[in-house]
C-alpha cells in the first residue's frame, strides 16, 4: 500500500493539523508516513494545501504529491477551484465538506470518480461549537478509505489536543470525528 492524500482548505482551518493527525494515527498502526504543507508562506484565509503519504514500507520520496489517490476538501467554497481535481484520476476519491449530495459536488467539480460528502461544518458547530471542519473530515476519510482504524484516529486526537485544549474540547473533537465517520454520504 502506498497512498497519497491531498488536503485543501484555507489558512487557519487546521488543514496541516488534519494531515498531521492522519499521519500520527498511521504511525500508531505501524505504518510509514509523511505529512507536509504546501511549501510556502501560509496566510490566514488563503487557499492552502497539505499532503499525507501512508505506506506499508519506508517512504524515501521527498518530492511533491502530483497524483493523489484521495482529495479532501475542508472548505466548500473551494470546490469550484480546478486545483481540487488536479492530478486526481477517475480511480481516485474526492471527499468534500458539503451539505448537499455527491451528485451536486460532481456538477460543480466535473469529477468522474467516487465522491463523498459530509456536512462537516454543521457537525463541527453542533459538537465543537465552532466551524472547524478538520477533525470531521478526518472522520469521513477514515470511513471512506479505511487507511487507519477509527479508534486510532481518536487516540491521536487525544494525544495531539488534550494538552492544548483540555479534555472537554478534545471530547468534542472526538465526537465530531465519530459523527462524520457515521454521517459521510456516498
Amino acid at each position: 500500500m502506498f497512498v497519497e492524500v491531498r488536503w485543501h482548505g484555507r489558512g487557519g482551518q487546521g488543514v496541516v493539523t488534519a494531515s498531521e493527525l492522519l499521519a500520527g494515527a498511521a504511525l500508531a498502526e505501524g505504518k510509514y508516513l509523511q505529512a507536509f504543507p504546501e511549501f510556502g508562506p501560509e496566510r490566514m484565509g488563503a487557499p492552502i494545501k497539505a499532503f499525507t503519504r501512508i505506506s506499508d514500507g519506508p517512504i524515501e520520496i521527498h518530492s511533491h504529491v502530483y497524483t493523489p489517490d484521495v482529495v479532501v476538501v475542508l472548505d466548500p467554497s473551494l470546490l469550484e477551484n480546478p486545483a481540487i481535481t488536479e492530478g486526481l484520476s477517475d480511480e481516485g476519491k474526492l471527499i468534500a465538506n458539503f451539505s448537499g449530495t455527491p451528485d451536486e459536488v460532481r456538477k460543480i467539480t466535473k469529477f468522474m470518480g467516487r465522491i463523498y460528502t459530509v456536512d462537516a461544518t454543521r457537525i463541527a458547530m453542533e459538537t465543537i461549537g465552532r466551524p472547524i471542519a478538520n477533525t470531521c473530515c478526518v472522520g469521513a476519510l477514515v470511513k471512506v478509505t479505511g487507511l487507519v482504524a477509527l479508534e486510532q484516529a481518536e487516540n491521536q486526537i487525544r494525544q495531539m489536543l488534550e494538552s492544548k485544549i483540555g479534555k472537554k474540547g478534545t471530547d468534542a473533537n472526538i465526537e465530531a470525528l465519530r459523527r462524520a465517520y457515521n454521517e459521510v454520504r456516498s
Binding site: L27, Y32, A35, F36, F39, G40, I59, H62
Partner: peptide
Amino acid sequence: LDAFILSHTYEP
C-alpha cells in the same frame, strides 16, 4: 536540512 522538504515535513 532542506527548506520545507524537511523543515516543514512531518516524519516519524
